[in-house]
Amino acid sequence: MTKVLAIDDSRTIRNLLRMSLENAGFEYHCAEDGRLGVDAFPDVRPDVVITDINMPNLDGYGVIEELRRGPNATKVPIIVLTTESSDELKARARAAGATGWIVKPFDDASLISVLKRLTGHAA
C-alpha cells in the first residue's frame, strides 16, 4: 500500500486528508507540526509526504529542507498543501525541494490524482 505522511497542524485538515486518502486506498500517517513530521519520517518511511506551510516548531519549508538535505535525506515526492497559490510560494517551496503543491480547499479527486501521478499509486 502506498504510504502517505501528512504533516499539518490543523486537526480538521488532517481528518479530511485521512478520509480522502484512506478511501482511495492509501495508508495514512500524520504528524501535528513540522518537527514531529520530520521526526516521524524515518519511522513511517512514507512513499509520499504532504505538508502544510504555516506550522509551529518547523514550517513547511523547513520540513522540505530537512527531508531533502537532512540526515535522512530522501527523494520521495513532497507535496505542499497550502491556501495560497502565489508564484512566490511555489518558487520558495520548489527551491527547498518540493515536488508539487495542492491548494486548499482541495477536492478529493484532484488530491488523489496528484498523488497517483507522483507516486504511481494504483487504487
Binding site: 486537526r11 481528518n15 485521512r18 495514512y28 504528524a31 514531529l36 519511522d43 516548531n57
Partner: peptide, 22 residues
C-alpha cells in the same frame, strides 16, 4: 512531545506518526 496529538490518531492504531513519544 512538542505538540498535542489530535483525535485523528486516537481512533486507529495504524495511523501512528512520531512514535510513542508524541
Amino acid at each position: 512531545p512538542r505538540s498535542r496529538v489530535g483525535d485523528d490518531e486516537a481512533k486507529g492504531g495504524k495511523g501512528s506518526s512520531g512514535g510513542a513519544n508524541a
